[in-house]
């Protein structure tokens, strides 16, 4: 029997997760992306890579935590570089009230006092008196994780072709999954861009085992260790659709946070400054829509890596439900 074929447009985290979920269900998948190489023009490339469903509860709808929590296992299964060491939330003394508030609005954490903080993150010993430790959370390096998905797809005979510009309407295959992110605005007029900026620094004098969130009155700041002395500091949230490079103001705010976390970051080298737009719907939640043979999956906002696995399952479900010619290979589904 001829296998059901689907073209996935977009090789960001949404597209690659969809492609893998479909392939695991026996669908014949082809992935195309207009970028020249993995990450080119994709906002996933700028992501923090925190899998922090319970921390996100502080500022987002409960559905983000519900749908995001299973993604930790999903990533651990498909990307061995997933690090499950939890995350730590700290605040400057002047923002102590914010820590209490964060605790009121989240779950699955432990209050960590000075000794526990020192045990978890020796380099932060003596710097904070109280913190919140979320032991079940995880993090990953988004770029390595995307590369791992491409490899996993290649093992399954799924090609990811770059430098291919294709509209969903003209794409071949029985069905098409539109994962173009913000570029899909031509088809999704209520999609908006929420600008985010990030900095990567290299610092040999500080070691961190897990992402640290610094409560900040304006932006959810975090510092994610990327190994080899590198740290990603993110991320601003600006209601702007300007794509230009990171601004001085944002960069100063991000770097200040790192410096406040540990003065050794003052001597860190700036390796990279990045900025991009997060594709976002008005409720800041992702959505899957089917229009004939096109399924549009979009609006992952700042939860790309956290919610893409759930989104991909929904897309696969939508496509499986729409056909009975599918040759199911359930054994493949972990």
């Amino acid at each position: 029997m001829k296998r059901y074929s689907v073209t996935v447009i977009g090789a960001g985290v949404a597209g690659l997760c969809c492609a893998l979920e479909l392939s695991l269900r026996g669908v014949d998948v082809d992935v195309v992306d207009r970028g020249r190489a993995l990450g080119d023009g994709s906002c996933s490339w700028q992501a923090g890579g925190m899998l922090a469903p319970w921390c996100e509860r502080a500022t987002t709808d409960a559905v983000v935590a519900e749908r995001g929590a299973p993604s930790i296992d999903w990533w651990a299964r498909h990307f061995p570089g997933t690090i499950r060491k939890g995350s730590l939330v700290v605040a400057q003394p002047r923002d102590a009230a914010d820590l209490t508030r964060f605790a009121q609005r989240t779950e699955r954490f432990e209050w960590a006092h000075a000794d526990r903080i020192a045990a978890l993150e020796p380099d932060l010993a003596g710097r904070f008196r109280r913190a919140l430790f979320f032991p079940d959370e995880a993090h990953l390096d988004p770029r390595l994780a995307l590369a791992a998905l491409v490899e996993r797809l290649a093992d399954r005979g799924v090609a990811v072709r770059f430098g291919v510009e294709m509209s969903p309407e003209e794409a071949p295959g029985d069905m098409v999954v539109d994962c173009r992110g913000f570029a899909a605005r031509d088809a999704l007029p209520d999609l908006r861009g929420v600008r985010g900026e990030m900095v990567v620094v290299r610092c040999r004098d500080v070691a961190l085992a897990r992402p640290i969130r610094m409560l900040h009155p304006r932006i959810p700041l975090y510092i994610v260790p990327r190994g080899d002395g590198r740290f990603m500091i993110g991320a601003t949230m600006v209601e702007s659709e300007q794509r230009g490079p990171a601004t001085v103001r944002s960069t100063v705010e991000l770097l200040n946070a790192a410096y406040a976390l540990h003065p050794s970051f003052g001597e860190a080298e700036i390796v990279e400054l990045g900025a991009d737009l997060r594709p976002t719907f008005s409720d800041n939640l992702p959505r899957v829509e089917r229009h004939g043979r096109i399924v549009r999956a979009n609006g992952l906002y700042r939860h790309g890596f956290l919610l893409a696995p759930a989104l991909a399952r929904e897309v696969a479900g939508t496509i499986l439900d729409s056909t009975d010619v599918l040759e199911r290979t359930d054994a493949d589904i972990p």
Partner: peptide, 15 residues
């Protein structure tokens, strides 16, 4: 805060 340059925050402002 939401501008940077002319029109950059259009979507939010439209909302």
């Amino acid at each position: 805060r939401e501008s940077g340059s002319e029109g950059a925050g259009q979507s939010f402002w439209s909302l």
